[in-house]
Amino acid sequence: MEKSFLEATRLNGFLEKLRLFGALHGPTVTDAGVTTFAPVTDPAQLLTDYRRTQIPPKKYLLPFREQLLSYRDGRYAEPAEAPPAIVLFALHPCDLAGIAYLDRVFLGDNTDPGYAARRARLTLVGISCEPDDFCFCSAPDAAANCDAFLATTKNGYLFSALTARGEEIAAAAADLLSASDVSQPAAALQSGTGVAPQDPELRFSDNPLWQKFADTCVSCGACSVCCPTCYCFDVREYPALDGGGVRIREWDNCLFATHGEVAGANFRPTRLDRLRYRFLHKYCGFTPLQGITSCVGCGRCKAVCPVGIDLRELFCAAGGEMSS
């Protein structure tokens, strides 16, 4: 029988082994009480049975604000940044699905160099979770996009390695793993979370919720800041006093008035236009991901929205399925 069982009492030892692969980060709670992915110096800080962090792990791949370029004497240069090796521990399947989606966007044609460099240095270790009222994922045990996965069982975890790096982790932690007669849960290695892709025509449905959402949305940006797959960004350039300068990119939000603006016109002038755009991007997908939903069902948007907007109500009322 394969040695794949990690007793709960051996978790701390396992974490020490993970540190061989980079700085250990995982779900912790801040002084103010916010659940966040952060460096784990003491295993006691780690929350293994957390529900969701406020900001998803995308912050490790796309920082909120990032320098793209600097310039001096009219010549632009890339930042000479070497990202650190990080092991991100205890990621839920929805967040892993979120990273898988971002990978498709940023590692495709014209690979994004900053994203790719950080992604290459990131080791992902998933963990199974218990959905709460905000979750709407369809397959909570799915965990394809990680290096290794821990499926929670009664007295510990079933370890599975999914990549070469996962195998290295298995090798490094070999003395901690024991044989187990508990078989791997069947769903554990299937991918697929979240909501089914939606019909783009629904953006013009006569559902009165559209107008209600447009009236109540405060455009605070929380839904996309906290979404594991929202990646729209703004690019701005700031000169410096010494004659040089920097070009940065920063998370943007399709609900801001500036999002569809050009000099002298706005192609999405009202909040209703922008909500439709959000629906279309989120649930129907843009080139080249048309027909693919980017919603992974983590429930963050619903949890952080000050006015309780849940875009899924638009298609549930229209007859689409809602799995919760």
């Binding site: 940023f106 014209n110 729209c232 960004f233 943007d252 999002h259 991007h281 997908g285 080139t287």
Partner: peptide, 20 residues
């Protein structure tokens, strides 16, 4: 005409329906 920030299909400011 749209205001493309990145030019390579990522920043998503230039969406036209499901196309960029």
């Amino acid at each position: 005409e749209r205001r493309m920030r990145c030019g390579v299909g990522r920043c998503c400011h230039c969406g036209i329906g499901q196309k960029l």
